[in-house]
Design a binder for these strands. Structure first.
Lengths: 241, 241
DNA sequence: AGACAATTAAATGTCTGACAAATGAAAAAT
DNA sequence: ATTTTTCATTTGTCAGACATTTAATTGTCT
């Protein structure tokens, strides 16, 4: 009854030990780990095993390795970008593997996104508002591909969450919204639906500009309902085919 | 234009290649990868290098390995629990390494948490409400340790987000709330502050019971303000010491 | 003394070959 | 028919070697 989730392999055990040292603060950012040969000695294993353990940690961006004299493995400073990239990978896979209905995903996405409206209306900057306007211009381009439209949509919503002026919130929201994009992409956007979406984007920017939380909330709610409608019509079209 | 951030090491490159195969659906859940020897042949590298690549993927829970005949590396089914555990590790480290102010963390936490109130009020079940009441009872225990109080607090808020009845939302919210707990733990809870918090928890449950979104929102807002006050007094006490 | 080039030591990255251990399937024995 | 044995396959680990990278050191020239 001791090894229910514990790793049966040495390399996993060593990785866990070092991971604990990092997460619990016994190893600090920038600290250099002993060389692979030393770690092998300390743990009584071969260098190959130690290397496998270090690669596990590197895969989680917990450490970075440098070659050459005075190189080695260093506790990595985890940047927002790295963390977000990992969160997106994990979440995207999770959503892709668990038969999430479009409606559930959509509901979650907009619920999360709405959590920043109050702060965004209060703190929005001209720089970010202009960024959002630029994305709207991009979205209005005729003959824009679906991928480009979606990419611009992500950029728009990312600017929206950045308006809240809270980096922690931006990290979580940007990660969740981006991870759900593949599900959102099940939709094919007609010219008609694009125009509808762009109008709502304009309403969001206008609401932020005059710091009117309610109108931003309303626009997001309509956008959510409209997106779900689009998703359902896609599913219906598939079912009858 | 292909290798701007790409890893210069073979094992990282091979890991990336296989990761793409999984993320982009060329390998499906349950599929077995070629044996290490075959992969080594295919990529023209040694088995040790392939193994390092596989360990990177295993660290992200993308694959699992089984020993023995007809064993090998299989594309893993990523469960909500595994994904959440990884998200918590990453987010906790991110917050710990980036000098986040208590106020920013708190603001983000409650903003995210509030995103589930409307759905929670609509869909709350008796089972979850009772779970929340049980946590309140636990929190009311005299001589409860600070750790136990915090753990029960996390359980309470987790039940709250589960009330929204959206598993995707639960995943994201539970992950964010849990990751911020270490920052919240900077606070030491006096008997007075515990009573205050428990009262607010009761208000939240009562609000959910009668499906009164506004009262739940209000209680969360007060909880946020109160938590920030507690955090500031801790900082002030430290500064004058 | 200072600037530049060559050397060197330390470390990771990779390869090779080997053996141990686990495991399911097939063959053999009962 | 059932149990046991054997066996091939595959991962886990080890030991030793060489290649490559890199910063510090040393040497040389001005």
């Amino acid at each position: 009854m001791k090894n229910q989730t514990a790793a049966p392999s040495l390399s996993a055990a060593i990785a866990d030990a070092i991971r604990s040292d990092i997460v619990e603060g016994r190893l600090l950012v920038g600290d250099r780990l002993p060389s692979e040969a030393e770690l092998a000695d300390q743990h009584g294993v071969s260098r190959a095993t130690v290397r496998e353990a270090l690669k596990r940690l590197a895969a989680q961006s917990l450490i970075r390795t440098e070659r050459g004299a005075f190189g080695g493995a260093f506790v990595n400073h985890l940047s927002y970008e790295e963390a977000r990239a990992q969160q997106v990978t994990t979440s995207t896979l999770l959503l892709g593997m668990n038969a999430i209905s479009f409606q559930v995903a959509c509901e979650a996405r907009y619920a999360l996104e709405r959590s920043c409206t109050a702060l965004a209306a209060e703190r929005r900057t001209d720089t970010l508002l202009n960024a959002m306007r630029n994305e709207i211009d991009t979205q209005s381009t005729p003959d824009l591909s679906d991928e480009a439209f979606c990419a611009s949509d992500v950029a728009f919503h990312r600017a929206l969450v950045d308006c809240a002026g809270n980096e922690v919130l931006s990290y979580h929201l940007a990660g969740s919204v981006e991870a759900m994009q593949p599900l959102m992409n099940m939709i094919t956007f007609t010219a008609r639906s694009r125009a509808e979406i762009i109008d709502l984007h304009r309403a969001i920017v206008a609401g932020l500009e005059i710091r009117d939380v309610a109108s931003v909330d309303r626009a997001l709610a309509i956008l959510e309902a409209y997106t779900i409608t689009l998703g359902q019509s896609v599913l219906k079209a598939r079912a009858t085919r």
